[in-house]
C-alpha cells in the first residue's frame, strides 16, 4: 500500500495523545485497530497528516462487569477478545451473539470494539447492538471526560460527536434490573462482507413480561437505525406470536434501506422482518426451556 505521506506518533498516555490531537488541529486520526482507517488510507480516500497510534497506551485493553452489573469495554479491546470472552457470554447475550459475526477472523483479531462504534459505519454491527442496549461512549478531551449515549453519539454516516481532540476511551452498557435476553442476526453475501441487513435485539424480562426492549438495525439506513416503535411495542407484555409479528413489521417499517448491489430496499425490509421475528422466537423458546 502506498498512502500519502503522514507523520506517525505513538503516545504513552491518553493526555499525551490528546495533546497530539490538539496539535493536529483536525488533520490527525487515531489509530487503534486500523481495520477501516488503513484501507481508506491505502485507497487515499483518507490522507491524514498525522496518525496517533494509541496502541502503546497501557490499560485500555479490558472488558469487565462491575458489581452493579455495568459493563465496560476499553478502547483497545479487540473484537476477538469479546468473541472469546466468558464474561460477555454470561452477561451480555446481544453482544455475545454479535461478536462472532463482526467482519472476519482476521479483522476481529486486530479491530477494536470502541473504534468500530466511533467509525459510525451504518453497516457496523456493534453500533446496532449498542443502540439496542442503550450503550454509551466515554470520551476524554482536554477539559476532561463526558459520557454520551450511542444513539446521540452517531450523527450520520461515518460521523460522530467527538471533537477533533477527544478520544473515546471506553464503552459502557448500563446495568439491568431484569433478566437479559438478546440476539444478533445478519445477512451477508460472504464472511467479511458488509451486512445486507442486520438486526440486534436486546430484551430485559421480568417473569414472562418484557420490561425493556431495544432493537438496532444494521445496513438499512444512512446510519444505524434505532427501531424504537418496534422495541416499545414489546414492552409490558409477554412474547406472544402476535407481539413478535407486530414488532417484526414495525422494525421493517423503521428500516430505511437503499436499493444497491446487495439487494432491493423491499428485500432488505423483508430480511429485517424475518430476522426480528427469528430472534424473538428464539428468545421465547430459550426462555420457555429455561423456565
Amino acid at each position: 500500500m502506498y498512502p500519502s505521506r503522514f507523520n506517525y506518533e505513538s503516545p504513552k498516555t491518553i493526555e499525551e495523545a490528546i495533546a497530539l490531537l490538539t496539535k493536529g488541529n483536525g488533520e490527525a486520526k487515531i489509530l487503534a485497530g486500523g481495520m477501516s482507517l488503513i484501507p481508506m488510507m491505502k485507497l487515499r480516500f483518507a490522507s491524514p497528516e498525522m496518525l496517533v497510534d494509541i496502541n502503546n497506551i497501557p490499560n485500555l485493553n479490558y472488558h469487565r462487569v462491575d458489581a452493579d452489573g455495568t459493563f465496560h469495554i476499553g478502547a483497545l479491546c479487540r473484537h476477538s477478545d469479546l468473541e472469546k470472552s466468558s464474561i460477555l457470554a454470561q452477561h451480555q447475550p446481544t453482544l455475545a451473539a454479535t461478536a462472532p459475526l463482526v467482519a472476519d477472523p482476521i479483522v476481529r483479531n486486530r479491530g477494536t470494539f470502541v473504534g468500530s462504534v466511533c467509525h459510525a459505519d451504518p453497516q457496523g454491527d456493534w453500533a446496532s447492538a449498542m443502540i439496542a442496549l442503550d450503550g454509551m461512549i466515554v470520551a476524554q478531551g482536554p477539559k476532561g471526560r463526558r459520557t454520551i449515549a450511542v444513539r446521540d453519539f452517531v450523527t450520520g454516516p461515518f460521523q460522530n460527536v467527538l471533537a477533533s481532540n477527544e478520544i473515546a476511551i471506553e464503552a459502557i452498557i448500563p446495568a439491568t434490573t431484569g433478566t437479559r435476553f438478546g440476539g444478533y442476526l445478519k445477512l451477508e453475501r460472504r464472511i467479511g462482507d458488509f451486512a445486507t441487513a442486520g438486526v440486534a435485539v436486546a430484551l430485559e424480562l421480568s417473569g414472562s413480561s418484557v420490561i425493556r426492549a431495544g432493537i438496532g438495525l444494521t445496513g438499512v439506513g444512512s446510519s444505524t437505525v434505532n427501531a424504537t416503535d418496534a422495541a416499545q411495542s414489546l414492552v409490558g407484555s409477554p412474547l406472544t406470536s402476535e407481539a413478535i409479528e407486530r414488532a417484526a413489521d414495525l422494525a421493517a417499517q423503521a428500516a430505511q434501506p437503499r436499493s444497491d448491489h446487495r439487494g432491493s430496499a423491499a428485500y432488505k425490509k423483508q430480511v429485517v422482518r424475518t430476522f426480528v421475528a427469528r430472534i424473538l422466537t428464539e428468545i421465547n423458546s430459550t426462555k420457555t426451556k429455561a423456565a
Binding site: 472476519d104 460472504r190 467479511g192 458488509f194 448491489h261
Partner: peptide, 16 residues
C-alpha cells in the same frame, strides 16, 4: 465497475 476490490468482488472463504 462495481467490484474493484475484495469487499465487492467476492471470493469465497473457508467459511462459506
Amino acid at each position: 465497475c462495481v467490484g474493484s476490490n475484495y469487499m465487492d468482488y467476492l471470493l469465497p472463504t473457508a467459511w462459506e
